[in-house]
């Protein structure tokens, strides 16, 4: 199981979600995608996408002022 990091800081919505979808399409089952983002609306859009796609979220936290990280596992 590998972990991949997607940096989307500075990108406004919906680009963090669009890039996350592209990145996870290329991962193997079981691999994790760490998405770092600073678009406020993605705090709603990213976990909702993971939940609806059935991907487990193994980490979701703030990393500073207006900065977040979420780890989604491909399943």
């Amino acid at each position: 199981m590998a972990q991949h990091v997607l940096e989307t800081d500075g990108q406004v919505c919906p680009f963090p979600l669009v890039e996350a979808k592209e990145a996870i399409a290329l991962l193997a089952i079981g691999d994790e995608l760490v998405i770092n983002f600073d678009c406020t609306q993605a705090t709603d859009a990213l976990p909702r996408w993971a939940a609806e796609a059935g991907y487990p979220v193994t980490n979701f936290d703030r990393v500073g002022s207006a900065a977040w990280t979420i780890t989604v596992q491909k399943s």
């Binding site: 590998a2 991949h4 919906p14 890039e19 592209e22 290329l26």
Partner: peptide, 29 residues
């Protein structure tokens, strides 16, 4: 601006999928 370029990138990544793990430029393994 969004879905068109995204589809093009995914198609390009699909074609380029060599034995090595394909990943967009912004993804670091």
């Amino acid at each position: 601006f969004i879905t068109g370029p995204s589809k093009a990138r995914l198609a390009a990544a699909g074609q380029a999928s060599a034995p090595a793990a394909p990943a967009p430029a912004s993804v670091r393994s």
